[in-house]
Design a protein around this nucleic acid. Structure first.
Lengths: 252, 252
DNA sequence: CGCGCCGTTGATATTATTCAAGACCAGTGG
DNA sequence: CCACTGGTCTTGAATAATATCAACGGCGCG
């Protein structure tokens, strides 16, 4: 089954909800502060909402889009979480992003009109489909929306650069500390606890994201626990000593 | 001397050429095929050109913009080369990009309205200043330009993701091979030799870019030379065995 | 209940870094 | 013209960090 036939909707078997079935609207979506609508007046949000043709529901492990699939839309996560992975020719994979509600996915497709990575749900997940041509169209009419899109793009680039810094110049323990702090911060922004959360990735996936092997990640968790920085039980993490963790990650 | 006072023009002592002095125009710039004008009709290029307020000339080592500087413009390199570096709080730096003519810089500033990295000239360099607000303005009127900007942004994101793959999952020799192939490809696109070129970075800078130490880079160059993959003399590189190099980098 | 995936931990191997010394090269000033 | 200097590059030896290999325990699910 080729992933290359042109389609507007992601290559997945999951249910696509037609717009008629939607009750939720951007303006009462709990993620509007982090997502594309941020900073828009309500009439502007309405225009954005008007082009959101559908939502997608994904079960754990299902792809939102696959490597090489035609690019037709951006996706805003409403619920759940998604990893994006880059594939090298010899089969190795590198997790490039770990996304949660409010994040916008699919930006990588804008240059070649093909997605250049895979986006896989880490748990049951729901995302809004934002047809890109229509988004371009209305963002020409609505400066605030254009600006918002640019802000999202800049944020993605900034994040990638910080991840380059992490992978290129931090040691293993610094990487894990930075990872935990990053999650902490993002959960906080979303109104969840910044000190207790459940990881949605396996040790192997965390390792891939951080440029480490799964055993190294596991050992580090154990050591952090010994040293009283965190409490870990499988994927449940509780941050105990935030200051030391910050110092480790050399993050302000 | 603070780098934070608001200015439109980069914080540098270099000469800024007013528009009156310009002879060159986008449409006869040799980089138009790679740069923002790509795919635009000539009247559209004229509109783009109309907002390019000035060009900047930088001497080797001078900054195009500094970390934390206010974001007001994108920059298109006409001539020369520029590195962009991320700074961690404890002073370490990571080179996030190695840019050459036709590349667009400054995209990282779009989210926070501050540049989040430093852009330093690696040799005498010339860049066009593209005021961002005006670019947003005319890209609302000119769909092709809007699209071109999005393409540039997508390209940057795609490039960053490939660099994440490199830093996160390739071994030292694979990284250097991939680096050389990437340069080869880019020089080729620009009409230069794809097999013989001069590096504009020191071993230390290459190391930073690749997440390695300068000694490791030096040893790898020596080994590649022994193995007949390249000929190296200081910064002058000649690629001898392209196929093996490609195989090493596991790049198609 | 058993199987498969996930996570932990130890022993060992490998890779890259660190430390150190010296060569090379271009620019500078005597 | 030459010696001097600072930055860059190369190479070797020792060391540290992380990966690899291997064994096992636990948990969830069919």
């Amino acid at each position: 089954m080729s992933t290359l036939e042109p389609r507007t909707i992601p290559q997945t078997s999951s249910k696509v909800i037609s717009i008629g079935e939607l009750r939720a609207h951007c303006s009462n979506c709990s993620m509007r502060e982090l997502c594309l609508p941020f900073g828009l007046a309500s009439s502007e949000v309405d225009q954005l909402y008007s082009i959101i043709g559908s939502r997608v529901k994904l079960k754990k492990g299902e792809p939102l889009f696959r490597n090489g699939a035609p690019f037709a839309a951006l996706y805003a996560i409403r619920l759940g979480s998604i990893k994006t992975t880059m594939l090298s020719d010899d089969g190795r994979e590198q997790i490039a992003g770990y996304h949660m509600p409010g994040d916008i996915l699919g930006l990588d497709g804008m240059s070649t009109n093909r997605h250049e990575c895979e986006a896989i749900a880490l748990e049951d997940t729901e995302a809004c489909v934002i047809p890109f041509e229509r988004l371009e169209e209305i963002s020409r009419k609505v400066p605030a929306l254009q600006h918002s899109l640019h802000r999202v793009l800049g944020r993605e680039i900034g994040h990638d650069h910080r991840q380059l810094l992490l992978l290129g110049s931090m040691r293993a323990e610094e990487r894990l500390a930075a990872f935990l702090l990053n999650l902490s911060e993002r959960y906080k922004c979303r109104g969840y606890s910044s000190t207790e959360f459940v990881l949605r990735m396996t040790r192997e996936e965390i390792g891939s994201f951080l440029g480490l092997k799964l055993e190294t990640v596991s050992r580090l968790f154990s050591r952090f626990q010994e040293e009283g920085l965190v409490q870990v039980q499988g994927r449940a993490v509780k941050i105990v000593d935030l200051p030391t963790l910050k110092q480790l990650a050399s993050v302000r």
